[in-house]
Design a protein around this nucleic acid. Structure first.
Lengths: 122, 122
DNA sequence: CAGCATCCTGCGTGATACTG
DNA sequence: CAGTATCACGCAGGATGCTG
């Protein structure tokens, strides 16, 4: 089992580790416009997910924690009740946005149904 | 459960689906220099994996098939014994290479241990 | 050489309920 | 509001052995 991340050997492996999970990339993308609160992120994810799929707090929490530990985002807790927590991109996270943009751009161009069907010949 | 890929709603989700799996990105990257045979891909993956981790044929086979069905690579079977099969990037696959390059570049710049430690302040 | 068949395991993810 | 706790499950992915 490969448990340790051989980052130096293969950057893409480390990249995959870092963005593994269904929501991490979308969270980063959502955060590119500025800080957002927990609930806002949650709502934002729901809209694009296919509508009905409820993202559970447990999962979102894990994703956010993982992103924080990866150093892509930063957690800002305004103390006290009612709880208010904001998440924002770190410098590292911001530097990552263009990469996500590239992914999105490519995806929009090549992953639309038409392309998928028409590519049988290639 | 989100089973169908709502590609239009979220390109990154579709992207993640497409490159899910430990080896797909690396396979694409290996293939960027030209066609490669099954065994060559296998060997290539072993070198960067951490050395000891053996990639099983079952897994590699699955990844290659998935990539083929995604339209990123193309399988060319020179009939007959001894078996010889080459895999090459499709046009779609080639268009994807720059994205992988961006990922690698970012990874090399930001995923080395040093950077991870120095980012605490941010 | 380039796979396929079978079995097995850990982890990611979802459902549900509860809390400071 | 922003989480944590517990339970459950499908599936990626590894081990091993066989084949055309």
């Amino acid at each position: 089992m490969a448990k340790a991340i051989p980052a130096r050997a293969c950057p893409v492996a480390a990249f995959q580790k870092m963005i593994s999970g269904k929501y991490k990339l979308r969270i980063v993308w959502d955060l590119k416009d500025g800080p957002r609160r927990y609930g806002e992120i949650r709502s934002g994810l729901l809209r694009g997910a296919g509508g009905s799929a409820e993202i559970t707090p447990r999962v979102l929490s894990r994703e956010l924690k993982a992103l924080t530990e990866s150093g892509l985002i930063d957690r800002k807790d305004f103390g006290e009740v009612p709880p208010k927590v904001e998440y924002r991109l770190t410098r590292k996270g911001k530097s990552f946005v263009p990469v996500v943009a590239a992914i999105r751009e490519w995806g929009e161009r090549n992953l639309n149904e038409a392309a998928a069907l028409a590519d049988a010949a290639e």
